[in-house]
Design a binder for these strands. Structure first.
Lengths: 136, 136
DNA sequence: TATTGTTATACTCTATAACTATA
DNA sequence: TATAGTTATAGAGTATAACAATA
């Protein structure tokens, strides 16, 4: 079949992202976490007492969509909320959350290493700068 | 906020893809097409009498999900089906579909050119090979 | 007046299972 | 027996609008 998409950067970008996102999702499923949840936990771990709004702004997740996401993490005993003032609340990993994050981080690190390893050496250093130019 | 994601290729890939996919979707909305629909029409245009199964296999779209997609394109008068045998049907663009595709192609070509232009020159030639190594 | 968190809702995309009819 | 098309359905992801309470 004639494939006019083979030289399309937009198409390559979508397919590569979807393949890698799918692979990561598969591996995080072993920890009973979705990709977004793991990303949110990672940010909370690095920034104790961060607010839901701040995380949403960083990851481009709407405030409204943070609610069920954080609720799942809280119900799973992985994060806890502490009132900062009357309207904000600080987020932090629980002990269980910290333990899980250590394991998750290993999975994510291995995934990232494998991703980079798939890229031929001569293109490797160009990947992140090229990608970041597209959105940062 | 501390951002442990800034050097993560997986994260950069997801964000870049989402930003670019969103931009393309915005522009295709002017043609009343979704990104997948435009992609499917492009393939049909280049491969008259191709089957739904073949397109699905190429784009990794499940057979079941091709049904409503093709129905929308057919209802919009953009594609038509011709029985090949008792169980297969060939897909082709209608006259209206061909006309629309010419305009869509211009939009997509401009989009792809702008995408590439965003990438600093020294990284540009590396983007597609690096991405393709991740999924092809 | 702007911000934080929330509720409710809807639409898209994707995945699975099962069915019919034909090759 | 495998394939093409279809139906129905469910789960994620994402978007918008509106609200209460607080800064």
């Amino acid at each position: 079949m004639r494939d006019p998409l083979s030289s399309s950067p937009g198409y390559s970008l979508r397919r590569a992202s979807s393949a890698m996102t799918g692979l990561l999702a598969e591996r995080l499923a072993a920890h009973e976490l979705r990709t977004v949840e793991a990303t949110v936990m990672l940010l909370i771990g690095e920034n104790p007492q961060v607010t839901a709004s701040k995380i949403g702004a960083t990851l481009d997740i709407q405030r409204a969509n943070m609610v069920p996401l954080l609720k799942r993490l809280e119900d799973a005993g992985l994060i806890e909320r502490t009132p900062i003032d009357g309207k904000s609340q600080g987020l932090a990993l629980t002990a269980a959350g910290t333990t899980k994050m250590a394991a998750v981080r290993k999975t994510v690190d291995r995934f990232e290493a494998e991703l980079i390893a798939r890229v031929p050496e001569e293109h490797r250093a160009h990947l992140i700068p090229a990608l970041d130019a597209l959105w940062r």
